[in-house]
Simulated scan of single mutants.
Amino acid sequence: MPVIRPPAVAGLFYPADAGELKQEVQEYLAAAQPFDLSPKALIVPHAGYIYSGAIAATAYATLRKLARKIRRVILLGPTHRVAIRGIALPGVDAFATPLGRIRIDVAAADAIRHLAQVTTSSHAHAQEHALEVQLPFLQSVLSDFTVLPLAVGNASAAEVAEVLECLWDGEETLIVISSDLSHYLPYATAQRIDYETVQAILNLTQPIAHEHACGGTPVSGLIIAAAHHHLRPHLLALKNSGDTAGDRDRVVGYAALAFTEDSNRD
């Protein structure tokens, strides 16, 4: 019998009813500002959909013309509930959402098991929302694909970049980094700090501090890999919870970015 990681935050971060979830995601995607890009990698926020769903949709909408080519998604995000050393494989055969199951890419998992920083922890994945909330968007945009969810704990940016290098491959592989920006700052302060963080990402400058992005380590690892592979980052959206569904006293920042091959390089 296959081992399935069931949804942990359905009904909390997004609707638990399949029909309602499908409609909500499609509405976010339909309303997303169009960008004529072909991303190799995305940075996407991971709050409840009422807060960051529209920002996330801006990133996922860029995949429409690539949907038939993408067959594997490498998904990295920070751990929020379980402290781990390194980067954890989920130790299951599939992840489930109200929209169905997504098979784990066994070949991709096997390709990185030899790395010292890679471990296996179903416990780290069991209640983790940062990876799960990306799945309904991927299921709504892509067709036939597998996923490799990686929970990033106490690791270095270089260790993340090494994992990405092992899994890079061609246009059939998409990399998604799940990260929010600053947390619980006043609105104007958050705007300033988040702008500075985004500028660092656009300039491929790292490290990105954890207090400026909860997924700072996987973001920094992507920056290293992006520089090596001559990718160019594009800002798609930058907002915070004060712009979407929260008050402005203590906000959380959200950005969507896409990384494409740089056609202007020599």
Rank of each mutant, 00 (worst) to 15 (best):
M1T: 11
P2A: 11
V3A: 14
I4T: 14
P6V: 10
P6R: 03
F13C: 07
D17P: 09
L21C: 00
L21E: 02
V25T: 10
Q26H: 14
E27Y: 04
Q33H: 15
S38Q: 15
S38R: 15
V44E: 04
Y49I: 00
Y51T: 03
G53E: 09
A54H: 14
A56N: 10
A57D: 06
T58N: 13
T58E: 15
L63S: 06
R64E: 14
A67Y: 04
I70P: 03
I74Q: 08
I74D: 02
G77Q: 08
G77F: 02
T79I: 10
R81C: 03
L89V: 13
L89I: 14
L89P: 10
P90G: 14
P90A: 12
G91E: 13
G91W: 08
G91Q: 14
V92A: 13
D93H: 06
D93C: 13
A94L: 08
A94N: 08
A96I: 01
L99S: 02
G100N: 15
R101T: 07
R101G: 03
R103T: 12
I104D: 00
D110F: 03
A111Q: 07
A111Y: 06
I112F: 04
A116V: 14
V118I: 14
V118N: 01
V118H: 08
S122F: 09
S122Q: 13
H123A: 15
A124L: 07
A124V: 00
A124I: 08
A124R: 06
H125T: 01
H125C: 10
H125A: 11
A126C: 05
Q127M: 05
E128M: 06
H129C: 04
A130N: 09
L131G: 02
V133M: 13
V133Y: 03
Q134A: 09
P136T: 09
P136N: 02
L138S: 10
Q139Y: 08
S140Q: 11
L142A: 02
D144S: 14
D144A: 11
F145A: 11
F145L: 06
P149K: 09
A151P: 00
A151C: 10
A151T: 09
A157Y: 00
A158L: 12
V160D: 04
A161P: 05
E162P: 02
E165S: 11
E165W: 05
E165H: 11
C166R: 02
E171I: 03
E171S: 13
L174M: 07
I175P: 01
I177N: 02
D180C: 02
Y184M: 05
A190F: 01
Q191I: 07
R192T: 10
D194K: 08
D194M: 02
E196V: 00
E196D: 11
Q199M: 13
A200L: 05
A200R: 15
L204T: 03
T205H: 13
A213I: 00
G215K: 03
T217H: 04
S220H: 08
I224P: 00
A226Y: 03
H228Y: 13
H230T: 14
R232L: 15
P233G: 05
L236P: 07
L238K: 12
K239Q: 13
N240L: 10
G242T: 01
T244W: 01
T244I: 11
A245N: 13
D247M: 11
A256M: 09
E261R: 15
N264S: 15
R265N: 09
D266L: 14
